[in-house]
């Protein structure tokens, strides 16, 4: 196990207007993450799938301690890092990295890409300046940005989106991390180049034996890349299982809806399940099962009690009263 979360929670306080503050004392919260327990095994890719507003990006930032959790625990490589601070946390960062969705925004526009990739090496005193330079050239070649000397001196603005994402990957990989959060790494990349970026990430996984938490809204992409899939809905995990069982036997109605919403070219299959409405906000989470207002199989119990994540078969968990 490289990473484990136990009942992790993150509530963001809602800023109230002046008038509201006069009349109510009670604080309101957006529950971005509301009790999530997941584990990422060594060398595996766990996909975190959900719509925007499900809290998946927040979870990614929480486990990297880029934001502080409200409650719960985060265990990284056998060590509780929930309350790690300052220098200790900073030193830990060489082992855990992040790749962002938007390669236009995640690189410093005023820093040469070679310098950007080199920076982690300097920050963590991994290599001298000269060694670091060589390591960067090496890395640039690995991610396919050749001639590497030429690319070293370029600024992000003269690179295409795909090339920038390669830079972001190189930067994340240069410290040989054990665990990488990839937050929608291909959703802004052209279709014909997506597979090459995913391929690159798989190659690093293989070479460095690292683990990914792969955050995506695209089930099709997660099917291609991951070992296991966790489906998130409104701040909670509703289903967790290996890729095969999630696609062959999706148990939660939400997972079924997600799968059937993916546009598929021929043969035009019947839509198994369509949902009405949209994901509600994290301020007013419905009572009981948070999915029940949109659920076509809603039962009485669903609006009263909240289902917990239960094991249905080996490695396949679901939080739904249909399966308890």
């Amino acid at each position: 196990m490289i990473l484990e979360t136990k009942d992790l929670k993150k509530y963001f306080p809602v800023t109230k207007s002046f008038i509201e503050r006069l009349f109510t004392r009670e604080m309101k919260y957006v529950k971005a993450i509301d009790g999530v327990s997941i584990d990422v095994r060594k060398g595996e890719i766990l996909s975190l799938v959900g719509e925007s507003g499900s809290g998946k990006t927040t979870l990614g930032k929480l486990v990297l301690r880029l934001i502080d959790p409200t409650d719960g625990r985060i265990i990284f490589d056998g060590r509780d890092i929930t309350y790690l601070k300052g220098e200790e946390l900073r030193r830990l960062r060489r082992h855990m990295q992040i790749i962002y969705q938007d390669p236009y925004a995640s690189l410093n526009p005023r820093m040469k890409i070679g310098e950007s990739i080199k920076d982690p090496l300097i920050i963590h005193n991994i290599a001298s300046d000269q060694e670091a330079y060589k390591m960067v050239l090496n890395m640039l070649e690995k991610v396919g940005l050749t001639p590497s000397e030429h690319f070293y001196g370029l600024y992000p603005r003269s690179l295409s989106g795909g090339q920038r994402q390669r830079v972001a990957i190189a930067r994340a990989m240069i410290t040989n991390p054990k665990f990488v959060v990839a937050d929608e790494p291909v959703s802004m990349i052209d279709v014909s180049l997506r597979a090459s970026i995913l391929d690159l990430m798989l190659r690093f996984k293989h070479d460095l034996h690292l683990s990914y938490l792969f955050i995506t809204h695209d089930l099709a992409v997660s099917k291609y890349i991951s070992d296991r899939i966790a489906v998130m809905y409104l701040a909670k995990i509703v289903e967790l299982g290996d890729v095969y069982s999630i696609f062959k036997k999706p148990l939660h109605p939400y997972t079924q809806a997600l799968i059937s919403a993916i546009p598929v070219p021929y043969p035009r299959r019947e839509k198994k399940l369509s949902l009405s409405g949209e994901i509600p906000s994290g301020i007013d989470i419905p009572p009981g099962c948070r999915f029940h207002p949109r659920c076509p199989f809603k039962m009485n119990i669903c609006s009263e009690e909240e289902p917990t994540l239960r094991r249905i078969e080996e490695g396949h968990y679901v939080a739904c009263f249909l399966h308890q």
């Binding site: 719509e51 925007s52 809204h217 695209d218 089930l219 809806a257 997600l258 059937s260 919403a261 993916i262 546009p263 839509k271 369509s274 949902l275 009405s276 949209e278 994901i279």
Partner: peptide, 10 residues
Amino acid sequence: DVIVQDQIVE
């Protein structure tokens, strides 16, 4: 998102 996309397509 994919579910809303599906709704719009329909």
